[in-house]
Every structure is written in C-alpha cells, then in structure tokens.
Design a protein around this nucleic acid. Structure first.
Lengths: 213, 213
DNA sequence: CTCGTAGGTGTATGCCGTACGCCAAAACTG
DNA sequence: CAGTTTTGGCGTACGGCATACACCTACGAG
C-alpha cells in the first residue's frame, strides 16, 4: 500500500564511500551523501537512524571483500594446501588490501570495530586457522589479540604516515638520531613489505606448530 | 611594554585534559575549555592557532610522563641492570600506563602521532634499547614498526572495547563460535596481562640477542 | 477514483570552529 | 605623572554540522 522506497542502504553506503574516496573522510556528512544521491539531507533519515549507522554501513561495504583473496580454512582444491602460518599471513594481508582500497574508512573501521560483519568473519577465519595450527582456546584468544592489535596499529600508522613526515619543528635529527635514521629507512621501504615483515615477526612470536599433517 | 599574558599554554592543556577526563573526548571544544578557565571562547585563540594545536598540547601533556617509570637506557645505579628485553617490555608498558591515565586522549594521540615530543622521546628510547640488543639499523627500524604498531593497536582495542561487548544484533555465538569463545576469554582476562602477553609475543618474534654483557 | 500510508522535504534548533573588530589594560616613554 | 602603543580579552557573526518536527504529496490497495 505505501509509497515504495527509491533507495537502498547499499546505495547509500556506496554514495558515502564515493564521497570518502573522492573528497576524504572529513568531507563525509549527511549533506554530502544526500547530494551524491540527488536527495535532500533529511531523506537519508528514512533509511538510517543517524550518522553512526551510516558509518557502519560504509565500513561493512568497504571491508566486505576482505576475505576474497585469502583462501581461509576451507578446502581450495589445490593439491598443496598452504601451511597455517602462510594462511594467517594471507589473512592479515587481505585485511591490509581491503583497507588500502579505501584508506579513508580506516578511522571509521577502528571506531566501529565491534559491530562490523566482515571483520567478525575475518576474525573467525583467523581463529579457525590458529586452531588448525594447534593452539588451544586461551592461546588462540591471546594470539588473536596480538594479531589484531598489530594489524590495527600497522594500518593506522601506514595511512596516517603523511603527517609524520612533517617534522614538528625543533631539530629532530640531532635530538633523536636513531629515530631520524629509522624514519629514513621507513621512507625507503615498500609499505607492503614493512607490513608483511611486522606480521611475520608477530607470527614468529606465536610459536605455531609446523602444520596440520 | 605590552599587556602581559594571563594564561599559559600549559594551563590551557591542563584545562582541556580536565574536560576530557571528566566529560569525555566528545565534550572537548574550544567553548568547554574556555569555560573551564573562566574565559570566553575567543580568548584561547591568543594562545593557540586552532583546535588542532590545542589537541597537540593535550597529547603532549597527557603523554609527558611516559618515560617516568621506565628505566630506559641510562644507567640507573642498580647493581643488576635489566636485560634489553625487559627494558623494552617496561617501555611498552609505560606507554600503556600513560595512556591508561587519560584514555580519552588516545584518539588524539593517534591522530597527531608524529608531532608529539614525548612520543618521539619514547621511540628514541625504544631504538636505543633495540640497538643495545644487537639490532642494526634496518632491523631496528623494522622492530620499531612492529612494536609501535602493536602498542597502538592494542591500546586502541583496549579502550574501545566497551563497544565490542555489545553484540551487533545477529546471532554471533552460533555463527562465530570461536570468536564468541575468544571474547569470553578476553572478558575474563586482566587487560594489563593481555597487553603484556601480546607484547612478549612480539618481542619473542624479534629474535633479540641475550644481552649487552 | 478514492484514500491512507509512508517517503521526501522545508524549516528550525543548538551545537561546532573561527574570522573580524572593538575596547581596555598595562608597560614603556616623555 | 600623563600619553602612547601594543596586545590580551571579548562580542558578534557566519557557515557548517546533526537532527527533531511538521508538512505535503506520490503512490499502491481497494
């Protein structure tokens, strides 16, 4: 009986993501998203409760393909199944790729890190693989905490790095020589390689068993 | 010759920190900080360029005592100097304590993570200790990246955790059994212990040399 | 064709950061 | 002690934000 809806939450999330990718996260507002959809601001409130819910939709959309590249725990038909360690690394890197495709949503993903389905699926996959690597419940929880912490921090550092390059004013190189050298090294390092190296470091610390078979 | 200043940037930062600690980060605004100092809003602009500079002042103030507890690399007079690994752990935990004293500033610290002097000092200490542990330049930079990433992510997770507890709606326990178990384990774990365990995991992965002597 | 539900919109409120201009306080100058 | 000038404090105002509320109208069911 009622007038049908002319929008979907998916369209709204896509519009918001377009705004973020084009103009940056600060440009995200109910007004800009509505304009992207050729609607007036208040029309959005027929679809989302408030701005926070819209942000959750964007995170869900942007992080949806997080598991597309990673094989995960399911059988993939290949005759040489990768070791749990390799699959864990692939899972971590798949999260980096998903965030890298839409760097602007990272602060949103961190803020709503609990209520996002793709992230929950990704964590479950992580735990499954940790279980296959021979870790029991408590060790799995600790390993998950270490891995998620590393990924969260590494991505945050990677995508806020431009601000770091600008030295705050006082003579940094003389006062902090080691830091200056480390920053130089970091500037010359491929971000993907730096991420992977750190991930391997954490994995080394987990003392995984060699493999399932 | 001119009229003297009646405020200091330190007082302004302290007022802002008071607001954050009492009413939370969302309550921080030029107006609330000015009110805390019994001034009108615009008076603050004689001392800070804009809100961002005020935020940097708050971060500097809140994170100032980050090195107070950690012995660092200087001689501390004790007849049993701790191993580099123990000092690294102490440095990481000192950052956790500093942030824990003012959890509200964490998002600000992450946003301005490059231009904050206490953080630069803390990182330099980290690098000094890594050097004493026998790591050369490139390995130091990689180790710093791993450690800072872990600390950043772990603190972010620890202080945003309340939002995680609230399950987003759909049946999480059945769909993500391992995650549900891990969340239960995590809820029953002392945050300080969880942080330390993760930190030790990363340190294990760094393959440090036994000691300087 | 009629009617009621619900989608789209206009308006308004109260926040926010901050640009601009005024005034008075205070310290140096004579 | 008076004048000058520099500058700190403040009032006002503007544009942008999220969003509450009321209005109207397009649409499908009957």
């Amino acid at each position: 009986m009622p007038r049908p809806r002319s929008l979907t939450t998916h369209q709204i999330a896509a519009a918001a993501l377009t705004v973020i990718d084009r103009d940056g996260l600060p440009a995200l507002s109910m007004r800009t998203v509505a304009a992207e959809l050729d609607r007036r601001t208040m029309a959005l409130y027929r679809y989302v409760e408030d701005r926070e819910e819209l942000e959750c939709l964007v995170v869900d959309l942007a992080l949806g393909p997080v598991l597309d590249r990673a094989a995960g725990s399911s059988a993939d038909g290949s005759d040489d199944p990768p070791a749990p360690r390799a699959r864990l690394l692939a899972l971590l890197e798949s999260m980096r790729e998903a965030v890298g495709a839409h760097p602007g949503v990272l602060p949103l993903a961190v803020r709503h890190h609990g209520g996002c389905l793709p992230v929950l699926r990704w964590r479950e996959r992580l735990l499954e693989t940790l279980a296959e690597a021979g870790l029991d419940g408590p060790r799995r929880a600790a390993a998950l905490h270490a891995l998620v912490s590393y990924v969260t921090g590494a991505l945050e550092l990677e995508h806020r790095a431009p601000a770091t390059t600008a030295t705050p004013g006082p003579a940094v190189p003389e006062t902090f020589p080691l830091l200056a050298a480390a920053l130089t090294t970091r500037a010359a390092t491929d971000p993907a390689r730096a991420f992977g190296d750190g991930a391997r470091t954490v994995l080394d610390g987990l003392a995984l068993e060699p493999g399932p078979d």
